[in-house]
Amino acid sequence: MEEAGRSTGPKTTKISMPKKRNFQAFKKDWQLYALILLPIIYLVIFKYVPMFGNIIAFRRFIPGGSIIGEDWVGFYYFKMFLSDPTFYNVFANTLILAFLLLVITFPAPIIFALLLNEVKNRLFKRFVQTASYLPHFFSIVVVAGMVFEMVALNGPLNSLIAFFGGDKINFIQLPEWFRTIFVSVDLWQGLGWGAILYLAALTGINEELYEAAKIDGANRWKQTLHITIPGILPTIVVLLILNIGNFLQVGFEKVLLLYNPLTYETADVIATYVYRIGLESGSFSYGTAIGLFESIVGLILVFGANYLSRRITDNSLW
């Protein structure tokens, strides 16, 4: 401390200039800083404090005791989940669902937007768009309720199967059907809404490019391949990076509503396991350790995707 204090001594003349400028900038804009102060305090308490609250993953936590736990236990809880067979099951389920979201529900709105883009009748286009947004505004609880009705033993889907002479399937209780149901629901709810940003990007593509392509004899498919898709690529990349961390969360609330003990085998994911271990069984530290593992993997994925994208496509978030 003493030494550091002395060593800054001679430098003070050098750094006083920018400091003065900083102070003047602050004096001029103090009202702007005053405005943002409350949200910053809010953010520190409700977003950054919980981040540091993850310290209980390394400490023994007793509900009702200190919020930062009682004493250090090191990687005890991490070793615990690494030898927990359920962890490997939920980890695998999470990866499979995240992969399905990545290859099915992420590209689907892009294709939907491209199809809509080919519709010249404005009224029809508007009608399709408006209808497709609707499920986005339904509460996930209502959506889950609708799913249960759709796939119920006497529901429309089973009626259809029976009509074609098939045997009724008790979808909601069969682990082999969970992933199909989950992805279908995600697709159903997100297709139209997910397409909006792409449609916005599509309207930004210069018409002249298409005119030029037509003169060169390119058909509509060639135009799509060489003008439309490159035109919306930056939007695709930005949304992919933004979502890649969320894929691991796999719509946790949706799983929580749609699964049941009979389908845990395929439906249980990291987030729901953390919920049950932490909030239902009260093993706060153990749950936090697993949750922290998931958050860090998510963060690495986002930074990794951003880095790769900057190298390969020249598009990135930062």
Partner: peptide
């Protein structure tokens, strides 16, 4: 400072404790 919270959050249990 704000955007970072989009990519990393405290997670379910630390939030619950807080």
């Amino acid at each position: 400072f704000f955007v970072f919270t989009m990519f990393f959050n405290g997670g379910l249990i630390p939030n619950y404790v807080l």
